[in-house]
Computed example of a mutant assay.
Amino acid sequence: MNNTQVTEFVLLQLWDTPVGQVVFILSFTLIYVLTLSGNLIIIIICRFDRTLYTPMYFFLSHLAALEICYISVTVPKMLYGSVTGNSSISYVACLTQLYFFGSLGSTECFLLAIMAYDRYVAVCKPLHYHNVMTAKLCTVLVSCCWSSGFISTMSSILFISTLQFCGPDHIQHFFCDITPLLRLSCTNVHHTETLIFLLASLILVGSCLVTLLSYISILTTVLAVASGNGRRKANSTFASHLTVVTIYYSTMIFVYVRPTTSGVSSFNKILSVLYTILTPLLNPFIYTLRNKEAQFALRKTRDKAVLHFKKSFPL
C-alpha cells in the first residue's frame, strides 16, 4: 500500500462539456450575485432603519450574514475551478473549507430553530413577548448559535485530520464534503464516521423538531383565531416558510444522518446544490423581502440614498 500522505485533492466539475460549462458558470454566477445582493440588502435595511429594530429582524440580519458566508465557502472556488480548469485544492484548504461549511451549516440549523421559537412566542404568547424576547436574550441566543456551530464542528475536523489519505486524490464532489472525503481515506474511519453521525443527528434532528413544532403551534393558533382573510395570509406565509425549512432540513438529514460512507454520491451532489446554493438564494425573499415592513424600509433607504446622491452630485 502507498503510505504517502496526499497533499492535494482534485474536486469534481459538475459539467464536462464546453456548452454545459458555460451555462453552469453563467447560471451560478448570477445565483451567487443575487444571493449576495438579497442578503446584503437585508443587512443594510435592518442596520439603518429603526423600525426594524425588533428581535425578528435582528435574527434575520444574522441569517442574511450567515447565508453570505455559507454560499461563499463553496461557490467562488467552484466557479474558479470551472473558469480556469484548475479544480485542485490543498489538503489544508480542503479541511478549512469543510470546517467552515460544517460550522456555518450547524449555525444555520440553530438559528432557524431560534427564529421559529421567536415567532412562536410572538404569535402564541403575545402578551409575554416583549418580556421574554429581550434584547439581551436575543444577543445571547445569537451568540450561542454562532459559537455552538463552530465549536461542534471542531471535533469532527480534528478526527478527520488524524486520518491518512494515500490516494486516489479525486473527490467526487464539487466541494470538500465529509462523505466523499472519508471515502478516500486509507485508514479506518469507523470512529470518525460514528462521531459525525451522532453530531449530525443531534444538530439536524434536534433543531428540525424545534422548528417544526414551533411552526405547527403557530399555525394551530392562527387558524383558531384568525378570520378567513387572515387564515389565507397565514397559510401562504406558513407554506413558504415550511417549504424552505423542508428543503434545507430534509436534504441535510438525508445526506448526513446516516452511515457517512454509504449512499449514491451522484444523488448527494444534487441534494447538496439545494442546501448549499438554493436555500441561501431563497431565504432573503421568503423570510424578509416579502414582508411589508421590510419593503417599506427598503423604499425609505432607497429614497434616502437617491437624495444623498443628488445632494452630493447636483446637476
Score class of each variant (00 low, 15 high):
272 S>T: 12
80 Y>A: 00
187 T>L: 04
295 Q>L: 15
292 K>M: 07
186 C>S: 15
162 T>R: 13
192 T>V: 09
35 T>S: 05
146 W>K: 04
188 N>L: 06
260 T>P: 01
264 V>N: 15
68 I>K: 07
307 L>G: 07
88 S>H: 02
59 F>T: 05
221 T>M: 09
245 V>P: 00
139 T>C: 13
110 F>R: 03
47 R>F: 14
121 V>Q: 04
226 A>Y: 03
284 P>V: 05
69 C>I: 06
195 L>V: 11
140 V>T: 04
267 F>M: 09
31 I>D: 05
131 N>Q: 09
232 R>S: 09
66 L>K: 00
147 S>Q: 11
89 I>F: 06
27 S>Y: 04
260 T>S: 10
263 G>Y: 08
241 H>K: 14
289 L>C: 07
245 V>L: 06
270 I>E: 12
105 G>Y: 01
230 G>S: 01
47 R>T: 15
44 I>L: 11
186 C>T: 15
204 L>N: 14
23 V>H: 05
124 C>E: 01
44 I>M: 08
251 T>I: 00
34 L>Q: 08
278 L>F: 10
172 Q>C: 11
38 G>D: 07
191 H>E: 14
237 T>R: 10
69 C>L: 13
80 Y>D: 04
79 L>V: 07
278 L>I: 12
48 F>Q: 11
24 F>S: 09
242 L>G: 01
139 T>N: 14
243 T>H: 05
39 N>L: 02
195 L>S: 10
200 A>I: 00
208 C>R: 10
248 Y>I: 01
70 Y>W: 10
30 L>I: 14
29 T>H: 02
39 N>G: 01
176 C>K: 03
116 A>V: 06
156 S>R: 03
224 A>N: 14
43 I>E: 11
44 I>Y: 13
73 V>H: 01
141 L>K: 00
7 T>Q: 15
306 V>K: 13
127 L>F: 12
15 W>T: 01
169 D>K: 12
40 L>T: 10
93 A>K: 11
25 I>V: 13
177 D>V: 09
13 Q>H: 09
147 S>M: 11
300 K>T: 15
302 R>A: 12
61 S>E: 11
17 T>E: 00
259 P>D: 08
287 Y>R: 02
124 C>Q: 08
121 V>N: 03
258 R>D: 03
197 F>C: 10
303 D>N: 15
25 I>D: 01
200 A>K: 06
55 P>L: 02
200 A>W: 00
281 L>Y: 10
154 M>D: 07
53 Y>F: 12
205 V>C: 11
237 T>W: 08
145 C>K: 06
270 I>Y: 14
147 S>R: 10
269 K>N: 07
259 P>E: 07
70 Y>T: 02
305 A>D: 01
293 E>M: 11
34 L>I: 15
